[in-house]
Design a protein around this nucleic acid. Structure first.
Lengths: 297, 297
DNA sequence: TTGGTTTGTTCAAATAATTTGAACAATTAA
DNA sequence: TTAATTGTTCAAATTATTTGAACAAACCAA
């Protein structure tokens, strides 16, 4: 008689409306018609006896209750996705889909070549790759949003249930634009000199991150971006300085768009990891790991 | 077009079937007819492409995949129940969680006793306390990371939308280790003398802070720490001198671990504040404020 | 300001999904 | 063996959802 007040459907609709910014756009994303969304939202509000959207003209804005519902609801949605995948994996032994997070600091080509080999043998397994920065990849693994992380930087989160193996080293160099004040200094630069310049920092949106001060030049002022490409762009136009992977900037240095700063104390090469959860028993993941290990380990 | 494979409905049905032991009993519990459950289970199995029940005669038994689906699904169901209740709570003007920042300079025991009273009347409100130093507590409030700040020091940020009330005074005294050079001076010390010694300063990690020179002895060299305990430790081993709350050092002075420096001009007692945003209309916050005010105001 | 869009909602009609109960075969208990 | 109970199937009945047209409000550009 009494159906549940909050349905998965309704959460998907809320998510889409907030994400796309309008009923019309959300409807398009969900392959529905706006009035259908209107119907679902109204039903949800009625069953819950709570107004979720404050109708301000034609644009709707979430009430505090609506905000909470959506924020928590999104966690439920991702739990549902994970549950779907896990259930299918248990039933078949093989995954329907393997989700991979790549840290954007990594050159993904070699890894993708291995994935390609894997896919040739498993035509019906889907691969879902998402790019993350900083701790985003670790968080994604911890929260079961992905099954495998490739190229995540140290430190490995001290969370039991995570297995991580080294797959490479990352040499980072400090770069700047040639017109930048730092570029005029001819001798090797020391730490305290760096502290006077603005630093471009990649910043993920994850809340409680693993303490990570590596590479963030202490004491100086910052310019925050959310991807490696943005970081390169910011440095190229002279906003500030920052560390970038050596191989990534080689071309740009050759083109004279960036220049490498000579440091008194070089930044030690950083380890990159591949990681997964030991609770994940999927055969596909196991085989993919073996392939990757034999190519990088 | 594609509806979610696992629905809340389906999870409720699985739960009931397993709990009651038969479709018939489950149907009764859910106010449905057995064939309706049959329909829902079949739909779930089809969408998921996973068999959930192994039909052994008329009695069905869960497959491993089905077991997992049900076990995890029950967690989702209880999350959904909580979410429903929380959303309705918020809609009525009450909070699910109240986040408090305490300045670590404060003795939190009296405040916690008041919070305890509040919690007795509101079993289902969560309290999230975080300790902050210096301007950390003000920043946390401004950035909406907390709802209430207790024991933050002056100056009150000149930001509209913040209401602050005095809840106490903080007497700070300059302390040092007895082996420290400053301890050898027998007369009251003046400002310029202090400037020659290294000062231990608490430093929060917040970026753009309110200009705050109070207590930081100007001109002298500094030793930065990030908590009151670290500051005490640093002074105790003789790294430098620093101001600390009178009541906090009384024991240490009695034990001869620290000594109070006699000053020509005493530092005036500093006001401590409780503060919140006036935009925050939560009933729980309001009541907690009233309780705190009546105990401290 | 004024048209020209776009948006969200409403409504009745159309469609799809679910529920129902009867019939049935399989299983169990006595 | 019989009698009772179970889960499934099926067509019919009932709900629930979707649709598209109509509309008013709000936005945008000129």
């Amino acid at each position: 008689m009494m159906s549940p007040a909050i349905t998965i459907e309704a959460l998907l609709v809320l998510d889409a409306i907030e994400y796309r910014g309008s009923y019309a756009a959300a409807a398009e994303q969900l392959n529905k018609v706006p009035s259908a969304l209107s119907y679902i939202v109204q039903k949800l509000e009625e069953q819950l006896n709570v107004t979720i959207f404050e109708r301000q003209g034609r644009r709707s804005v979430l009430t505090p209750a609506g905000k909470h519902l959506l924020a928590e609801g999104r966690k439920v949605l991702s739990a549902m996705n994970a549950l779907t995948a896990q259930t299918q994996t248990i039933a078949n032994g093989w995954e329907t889909k393997i989700r991979i997070a790549c840290d954007s600091i990594l050159d993904i080509n070699p890894a993708f070549r291995v994935v390609q080999h894997f896919l040739e043998e498993h035509q019906n397994i889907e691969i879902d790759v998402q790019e993350e920065v900083m701790n985003g990849s670790w968080q994604a693994l911890i929260q079961d949003k992905v099954d495998l992380v490739i190229g995540a930087p140290s430190p490995v989160p001290s969370q039991k249930g995570i297995r991580a193996i080294k797959i490479g080293k990352l040499e980072q160099v400090l770069v700047t634009h040639k017109s930048h004040a730092l570029a005029q200094i001819k001798q090797p630069v020391n730490k305290s000199t760096l502290a006077t310049f603005r630093t471009v920092v990649i910043h993920d949106s994850v809340q409680h991150e693993i303490p990570r001060s590596v590479n963030v030049i202490e004491g100086s002022r910052h310019f925050y971006v959310t991807s490696v490409n943005q970081k390169i762009a910011a440095i190229t136009v002279g906003i500030g300085i920052g560390y970038l992977p050596k191989e990534l900037v080689e071309n740009l240095v050759a083109n004279d768009e960036l220049m490498i700063v000579d440091l008194v104390e070089q930044l030690p090469a950083q380890d990159l990891f591949m990681a997964w959860k030991i609770t994940n028993k999927g055969k596909g993941l196991h085989q993919l790991r073996s392939l990757l290990e034999s190519h990088f380990g």
